[in-house]
């Protein structure tokens, strides 16, 4: 079982790249510990800015730095970054087109029993609704590394959401298929397509294996690029398979599944089922407990496919 959390990879990549590129700046809001950014903060103090518990200012200051040529990485819990700082993200980052990468850590329901204030199950909706804001939910540590290395090369806004804990690898070290803004085909199949993002890609892959044993051929797409979504891959899936099941750690309105359903409805209608968190505060539990309660794990995905196909 992999022990390296996605946030650790982000720390490592930024630490490495910032040695060569003095314009990289990381900002935290009393969040360096939970963000896994302590090594960066300690080893690169001249390229690290602590803002204190002030997430709105975090994003505005990041945008100001970016407007003066810095590559700003604002790293803070996804819940606060995507709601408290929403207007700063909209105006100072997306609308002003500044080179700010917003890294939402401990995303989704990672904070478990800390409750709704700490969950970010609406961040695809809030961030994705802003023109010029890209939204990425990488699945495993290997894809996270590819994503961050790629984003370091551009100068456009983006929001990246990662979970709190290490997740099982989806890909293999040294062999990570990755093309920016293209869904990764995790497994091909012809009966049903499971489209997942973030931590739940692993469950989608497991579900596909179980379905295979039942004689159902399932395609699995890792839609880490929720916005801009890979329209071609969605339309292709709609044309080639009889059912699309989306799986995400997000509420039902305005999430990845909503975007998929919009594309399918307008281009190649086929049945789309969205597996999401409910439109209410989730039950108290650890991430895995919450996922299985709402049928977002491999078992729930298999059940949905069997019922719907």
């Amino acid at each position: 079982m992999n022990k390296i959390a996605n946030k650790q990879v982000i720390n490592d990549v930024l630490l490495e790249e910032s040695a060569k590129d003095k314009d990289i700046v990381v900002l935290c809001s009393d969040s360096r510990g939970s963000a896994g950014m302590k090594p960066y903060a300690e080893q690169r103090p001249e390229q690290f800015i602590e803002i204190g518990i002030a997430e709105q200012n975090l994003v505005s200051v990041a945008a100001g730095l970016a407007s003066c040529g810095k590559k700003a990485y604002a790293v803070s819990p996804a819940s606060f970054l995507s709601t408290r700082s929403m207007e700063q993200a909209k105006v100072d980052v997306a609308y002003s087109n500044t080179n700010v990468k917003l890294i939402g850590i401990s995303g989704g329901v990672s904070y478990g029993a800390l409750g709704m204030t700490h969950h970010s199950a609406t961040d695809i909706a809030t961030m994705g609704s802003m023109p010029n804001m890209r939204v990425y939910l990488p699945s495993d540590r290997l894809q996270t590394e590819c994503l961050i290395r790629t984003l370091l090369k551009d100068d456009k806004p983006a929001y990246i959401r990662i979970g709190r804990n290490a997740v099982e690898d989806v890909y293999q070290e040294g062999n990570v298929p990755f093309e920016l803004d293209r869904a990764t085909l995790v497994k091909d199949g012809s009966d049903v397509t499971i489209i997942a993002c973030g931590e739940l890609v692993g469950d989608a892959r497991k579900a596909a294996q179980e379905l295979e044993e039942k004689g159902i051929s399932a395609r699995v797409l890792d839609m880490y690029c929720v916005k801009p979504i890979d329209r071609d891959a969605v339309i292709k899936a709609a044309k080639e398979t009889k059912l699309i099941v989306t799986v995400e750690e997000h509420t039902m309105y305005g999430g990845m599944g909503s975007i998929v359903a919009q594309i399918v409805a307008g281009n190649a209608p086929v049945k789309v089922v969205n597996l999401t968190l409910p439109d209410e505060p989730v039950i108290t539990g650890k991430s895995r407990e919450v996922f299985s309660y709402y049928g977002l794990d491999a078992k729930g995905i298999v059940k949905t496919v069997m019922e719907q196909l």
Partner: peptide
């Protein structure tokens, strides 16, 4: 703070 508890880790 346990599974399904109403006593979560912040005032509710």
């Amino acid at each position: 703070s346990g599974y399904l508890s109403k006593y979560i880790g912040h005032p509710n």
